[in-house]
Amino acid sequence: MFNQKDGTVGIAYNIKKDTNIITFGAILHLTIKDNKVLPEYLTLVLNSLVV
């Protein structure tokens, strides 16, 4: 399930390793809970013109 977030669509990134970073509040962090969805595919779809 996804939460709604207001704002403009930016660029989606797939970070493959754990990092110790601090992000601004305007960034939405998504966690994939279903193994049927590949992170690379989700990144591609979120960066498509359709979205």
Rank of each mutant, 00 (worst) to 15 (best):
M1R: 06
M1L: 06
M1E: 03
N3M: 15
N3L: 13
Q4S: 14
K5L: 13
D6L: 13
G7M: 08
G7P: 13
G7A: 11
T8R: 12
T8W: 02
T8P: 04
V9L: 05
G10Y: 12
G10C: 04
I11M: 12
I11V: 15
N14F: 09
I15H: 09
K16E: 13
K16P: 09
K17Q: 08
K17T: 09
K17P: 01
D18Q: 03
N20P: 02
N20G: 07
I21W: 07
I21S: 08
I21C: 05
I21R: 05
T23D: 07
F24W: 09
F24A: 06
F24G: 09
G25I: 06
G25P: 05
A26Y: 12
H29T: 05
L30K: 10
L30H: 02
T31C: 03
I32E: 04
I32W: 02
I32D: 07
I32A: 04
K33I: 01
K33Y: 00
D34A: 01
D34W: 00
N35T: 01
N35P: 02
N35E: 02
K36A: 11
K36L: 04
V37I: 07
L38G: 07
L38H: 01
P39E: 12
P39K: 03
E40A: 10
Y41R: 14
L42I: 10
T43I: 05
L44A: 15
L46K: 06
N47H: 07
N47A: 09
S48Q: 14
L49Y: 08
L49K: 13
L49D: 09
V50E: 13
V51D: 09
V51A: 10
V51G: 08
